[in-house]
Write a protein that binds this DNA or RNA. Structure first.
Lengths: 203, 203
DNA sequence: TTACGATTTAACCATTTGATTAAACCATCT
DNA sequence: AGATGGTTTAATCAAATGGTTAAATCGTAA
C-alpha cells in the first residue's frame, strides 16, 4: 500500500471539478479544464472517476446536500419564529456569499434532465419535506394552511437566493462592483427579516 | 424575387432556436436539434444565421429586451404605488407563466462570459436605469435612498422570478404537479403585493 | 420554355472532446 | 537489487458537433 501524496490527487481533482462544474454547469464544463486546474493529466480524471457523468455526480452528491441543509436549517432549532427567520437570513446569506456559484450550479443541474435527483431528495438526511411538515404542524395554532406555508417558504428562498443568481444582471443595471454587491448582501441580512416577519399572519 | 413559403423558413428556424436555447442554454443546445425541431436541413441554419453564436444572438436580442421590458414596466405608469406593485406582479407573473424558460435562459446566458451584453443594457430602450432613477426621484418625498430602492427592486424581482427558476426543486420537495404549481403562482399574484406593500416605509 | 437566382439538401470536413491504452514512474516489500 | 502494484503520463482513438461545399430544386421573369 502506497502512502498518499502530500496533496491527495483524488481530492485535488474533485476540488477542481467542483470549481469548474459550479461555474459552468455540466454541459459547459470541459474535462481538460478540470485537469489543468488540478495540475494533472487528463487521463487521471478517468482513472479516479471513470467518466464525466460520474465525476459530475461526485460533485453533485456533496453540493446538493449542502444546499439542502442550508435551505432547511431554519427548521432545526426551537427559537421563536422571529429569531429563527433572522438567524436564517444571516446564516444563509453568509453561506451564499462564500459559495456564490452554488445556486446556479443547482438550478442548471436540475434544469437539464439530470434525473435520479428526485431520488437524492428522498435520501436527504434530514428530509426537507419531513422537517417542513413538522414545522407546519407546530404552526397549526395560527391556522396556517400548507399552501400558506409553501408560499412563505418560497418567499424565504427567493429573497435570499435570487440575488446571487441574478448578480451579473443586477450589478450591470446599477453599475455595482463586487464590493458594492457584497455590502448590498450584507445589509440584506438585516432588511429581509423585517420584511418577512411583517408578512406572517398574527395569531 | 421568390415568394416566401407559407411558413417563412428563416422564422421557423428562429422559433426552433428560441425553443432550444431557452431550455438548454448556449452550451447545452445542439444545432442538429434546432434543425430537427424546425423540420429543416442543418445547413440551412448556417445559410441564414452563419454560425451558432450568431443564431444564439438572434434569439438573445429578442428575448433579453422582452425580459427587461417586463422588469421595468412597473415604472411606466403613474398609478399610486400600491396599484403599481399590484399590477406589476399580476402582469409579470402572467408573463413568466407563459414564458417559463426565459429566466433560466437569461441567467445562464449572463453566467457564461457572453459579454458585449452590458452593451445591450445601455442600448435598451427604455433604459432600465434611467427609468429607475426617475422613479427614485419621484419617491424622494419619502426620503428613500438609492440603496433602499435597489433592495426594494431586488425584492420585487426575487419574489416573482425565483419560483420559475427553482420550479424543478420546489415541485419535487413538495410533490407538486404542473397544475399545482400553476395555481401556486396564480395565488402568488395576490399574496406578493400585500407582502411587499407592507415593507414600504410610510411617508 | 429557358435562364437565373434564391433556397434547400446530401455528403463531407475539421475540430473538439470524452475516453482508452500501453508504457513509464515510483514507493514499498522481499 | 529486483519484483510488485498502485499511480501518472503521452499518445491515440472514436464519437459528437459545428461548419462547408457542390449539386439539386424550385419559383419567377424574360
Amino acid at each position: 500500500m502506497r502512502i498518499p501524496k502530500e496533496e491527495n490527487t483524488e481530492k485535488k481533482i474533485l476540488a477542481a471539478a467542483r470549481e469548474v462544474f459550479h461555474r459552468k454547469g455540466f454541459e459547459g464544463a470541459r474535462m481538460q479544464e478540470i485537469a489543468d486546474l488540478a495540475g494533472v493529466n487528463k487521463a487521471l480524471l478517468h482513472y479516479y472517476y471513470r467518466d464525466k457523468q460520474k465525476l459530475f455526480h461526485a460533485v453533485f452528491r456533496e453540493t446538493f446536500p449542502a444546499m439542502i441543509r442550508e435551505m432547511t436549517v431554519i427548521f432545526s432549532t426551537d427559537e421563536p419564529l422571529e429569531t429563527k427567520i433572522s438567524n436564517f437570513f444571516n446564516r444563509h446569506i453568509s453561506f451564499l456569499q462564500q459559495n456564490s456559484y452554488i445556486p446556479y450550479f443547482i438550478i442548471s443541474s436540475l434544469q437539464q434532465n439530470h434525473q435520479e435527483l428526485p431520488e437524492m431528495l428522498k435520501n436527504a438526511n434530514p428530509s426537507p419535506y419531513a422537517l417542513i411538515r413538522k414545522q407546519l404542524d407546530q404552526e397549526q395554532r395560527s391556522g396556517i394552511t400548507e399552501e400558506d406555508f409553501i408560499q412563505f417558504y418560497l418567499n424565504l428562498l427567493s429573497l435570499s437566493v435570487f440575488p446571487f443568481l441574478a448578480k451579473p444582471l443586477i450589478a450591470n443595471i446599477f453599475d455595482l462592483n463586487d464590493e458594492d454587491y457584497q455590502s448590498l448582501m450584507e445589509k440584506r441580512k438585516k432588511v429581509l427579516p423585517e420584511l418577512l416577519i411583517k408578512s406572517i399572519p398574527k395569531k
